[in-house]
Nucleic acid binder design. Structure first.
Lengths: 208, 208
DNA sequence: AGTCAAACTGAACTGAACTCAGGTTGCTAG
DNA sequence: CTAGCAACCTGAGTTCAGTTCAGTTTGACT
């Protein structure tokens, strides 16, 4: 189920937090954050608009939470896929593979992340929003560091030609993430095919 | 000057349209579209808020205009750089080079484009907004076709290994455009260096 | 049965985008 | 010169989604 990861440890049994997140992911992912009315999310969950504020400080706080959760998942998946891989080329393959091992809900979350990255730039006025924003920003930096480290290791071991590892890491990430801008599960190209093409691109970018 | 391209042919001499666009590009590009108050743009130009509506139907209409202008410029630059190039590899090099031949204001416009692409997805309620949106969407598709054609030609001539040209074109575009998400003129990596790295990536992605 | 925190609500508030009903400016024609 | 007219501009008022307020309901646990 989708909701499993959306449940926080300290939630009461009556809590609708997970349901709100799930509904918000659907709306924000399909129609876009700005285009969806916060009250529509409440409607879908079956509560009044004001009840939302019991769980989230604001619409933006909910969005930032969704983004942070997805970044966390993304990073965990990277770490899980690459730890233990000795060969840098195999590690790179595993990292790209992990980036494409996503459910439909996670595709939406990646899209949301992509479309609202700009929110992570400026500071937020309210406290809980700012906390989520900071956490998300730090996860982004962690992920960039993880990829950079993977590349640096490969370069120092002679598996990859030496280049600016950080910029190259940003390029790889940019390439991979850009897929979620246009990819649709209903589209003509199946995800496995996209994954294969992108994996090839990444390997050629780094190893040749 | 920046404003030169922002002036429409049928503008009166007193028109502040160009000044509004320039101010909006600065604010939308630096602080983000949602984060900038429409009235702040008016303030910068030195007119009342309501005067904005003499030139643009809405804040979104202004944004869509900025996006369309940048897409137009982008496409023109691609065509100018690649027409006449016989060798597919040279054409690819020229295309990437053209993508990085940008002024500071154009960097902001690329960032704005990148951050608000989601606006091009859904239809707009008002007429002039919808016109701009359609134009922008069609430019995006033109650009995708241009790149796909470049790749298809290279593949059929044997200069590039045969792959899904359209998906590969989207990957190239995604890679190039992703730069504008993180690149800052004040940053540690100069644009020429970024350009070189990305050009190398693109060539390896396509030719190896 | 009483208590308490979690969960919820309708009514009121806020602020930024936008509309309205005109007023000003300066070019152009007579 | 001045009349007319279109481009340009304005202050006051409206709208609407997001948010706050001032409580009320629910249900687990003494």
């Amino acid at each position: 189920m989708t909701g499993a990861r959306l449940v926080e440890p300290d939630e009461g049994p009556r809590s609708k937090r997970g349901a709100i997140l799930a509904a918000a992911i659907e709306y924000f992912g399909e129609a876009g954050y700005e285009a969806t009315k916060w009250s529509a999310v409440a409607g879908r969950v079956g509560i009044g608009q004001t009840a939302l504020y019991h769980y989230f400080e604001s619409k933006a706080h909910c969005l930032l939470t969704i983004m942070r959760l997805e970044l966390q998942r993304s990073r965990d998946q990277f770490v899980e896929a690459t730890e233990g891989e000795q060969d840098p080329v195999a590690a790179l393959r595993a990292a790209v593979g992990a980036a494409f091992a996503v459910s439909e809900a996670e595709i939406l979350q990646m899209r949301i992340l992509q479309n609202n990255m700009v929110l992570l730039a400026g500071p937020r006025a309210s406290k809980r929003e700012e906390t989520e924003r900071r956490a998300a920003r730090e996860l982004v930096q962690s992920i960039e560091r993880d990829w950079t480290r993977l590349l640096t290791r490969g370069m120092s071991e002679g598996a990859f030609p030496v280049r600016d590892a950080h910029t190259l890491a940003l390029a790889l990430l940019g390439l991979i993430i850009s897929v979620w801008r246009w990819y649709r599960p209903t589209g003509s190209t199946p995800l496995a095919e996209v994954r294969e093409l992108i994996e090839g691109c990444c390997l050629r970018m780094v190893t040749e």
